[in-house]
């Protein structure tokens, strides 16, 4: 029983991290109707920038203040993400207004390649570490309820809490602020939004910035957990089923989808894996998403898709 709950909690924590990446997908899709395959590359670039800026400034400061180095790192990485957002809008999106979804999708694949190449050229392609002082030691919880208690990483716990805060904030931002409404209007119809005076270009820069910051948070958490390396980009491929499951337009959907996929993956790997040779995590998530897709193409929380003639 304790083991089952441990597995499940582990799944929930991983799920929270998937949700963070998925959140980036949802944000950009909501505001520009673009499915951003480059989200994984953005996580990588953000994490690389963070790791290297804090490393460099730490060296420049003589290793005195890790905190200050990290702050510089975050500011630097934030600036890089802003630059990315600006460049994407200026050189790509602006020229593709009112194009089909499939074209935009493929364009983001191109953006992903460019980001991966540039990021590694500037920041290097070794394995780097991020140390933001996350506690690594496990704690034992629920000792009174279950025999032996349940072991949880403090780090995972903090990460999950951070993700939850981020999600709450973003939901409020979309529902309650004028910018949030403008973003949703743009997603609905580029031309119509423009004609009521919403500045398309600015809106896009803002939303890519927000997605960049989400990528930065995800990058810091994933990076401090597993080290910053190229394989971070595959996080995007792991988070893809999450948004399909939750619905592309729904912020809460990304969270719930993330949790379901996280738990489903872990449980299937532990309880089903041994029978079929293991390593089933990735495709299991996809098959789950696929099944949902067949019955509810809009995902669990997405808006219904209506075709008009």
């Amino acid at each position: 029983m304790g083991f089952f709950i441990e597995t499940m909690l582990g799944g929930l924590m991983t799920g929270m991290l998937y949700a963070l990446v998925a959140l980036g997908f949802v944000l950009i899709f909501k505001a520009s109707g673009v499915f951003n395959f480059a989200q994984g590359a953005m996580v990588l670039v953000a994490a690389l920038a963070m790791a290297r800026f804090s490393e460099w400034s730490n060296a420049a400061l003589g290793g005195d203040s890790l905190f200050l180095a990290n702050v510089i790192g975050i500011i630097g990485a934030g600036a890089v993400m802003f630059l990315v957002a600006w460049a994407v809008e200026r050189f790509v999106l602006r020229k593709l207004v009112n194009q089909e979804g499939a074209t935009l999708l493929m364009v983001t694949l191109g953006i992903a390649y460019v980001l991966e190449g540039l990021g590694q050229t500037f920041f290097g392609s070794e394995i780097y570490s991020i140390n933001v002082g996350m506690p690594k030691d496990p704690v034992i919880m629920f000792e009174g309820l279950i025999e032996g208690g349940v072991m949880i990483n403090k780090e995972d716990f903090i990460a999950a809490a951070l993700a939850a805060v981020l999600v709450g904030g973003l939901t409020l931002f979309f529902q309650k602020t004028a910018i949030g409404r403008a973003l949703r209007a743009v997603a609905d119809d580029h031309q119509a939004a423009q004609s009521v005076g919403i500045p398309l270009n600015k809106t896009w820069v803002i939303v890519w910035c927000v997605a960049g910051l989400v990528a930065l948070v995800a990058g810091i958490i994933w990076g401090s957990k597993m080290g910053v390396q190229f394989s971070l980009v595959t996080v995007a491929l792991r988070a893809l089923p999450v948004v399909i499951l939750g619905g592309l337009t729904s912020v809460p959907g990304a969270i719930v989808g993330g949790l379901i996929i996280g738990v489903g993956e872990k449980l299937s790997e532990v309880y089903l894996g041994p029978f079929v040779g293991g390593g089933i995590e990735i495709w299991f998530a996809y098959v789950m998403a696929l099944i949902v897709l067949l019955f509810r193409p809009q995902g669990l929380f997405g808006e219904k898709i209506i075709n008009r003639v």
Binding site: F91, V92, G110, I111, Y113, V114, E116, G117, Q120, T121
Partner: peptide
Amino acid sequence: HAEFIIFGSLIIFFLI
């Protein structure tokens, strides 16, 4: 890395 950048840019270029 240059290969990545060139491929990516070309994809974007051709699609646009």
